[in-house]
Amino acid sequence: MEPILFWIFSLGMIVAGVSVILNRNPVAAALSLAVTIVFLALMFGFCLGAWFLMVIQVAVYAGAVMVLFLFIIMLLDVKEEETRTRSWSYAVMGSALALFMMCMVVLVLRATEPVKAAADAGVPVDDAQQIGTLLFTKYLLPFEITSVLLLVAAIGVVLLSLTHKRESSS
């Protein structure tokens, strides 16, 4: 585990994350979110050794979810916020709340003993095999329920997008 990699990934993640919420252009915000997610995936893989989750993160988030977001932005033709419509009270409140909670987290982290990496940290682990074994033995029922959830979501999306058509035809 290289410390320099951790700093690069976390810095890139935070910069891209701030750019998500400060960008006026929705497409630029979506691309910044994609950068955040890719950096997070790299951190999963190279710093934490979770290679399987790195692949899943890139495939599902940077692939599917971001394409969905960009597709919806294109479909709705969302414009940039031309005028400065955000009110200062919301900006102050949001930043203050975030800073307050950040301070709480820092206080808690400073009070706790730093946990060192496990003894075998850095040793390549066969995490895909371990996750697969667990998924199909110990967590078989949640895994199957997830498939039902995805089916329900797919049917729900189809119904939601059909409603308008039915109303306009009748």
Partner: peptide, 25 residues
Amino acid sequence: EITLNHYLAVSAVLFMIGLAGVILR
């Protein structure tokens, strides 16, 4: 050396950025 607390701090920062975005956008 990078400890668990570093990861938790980065995670907290990312969460707070998201929270601020939900409130002020």
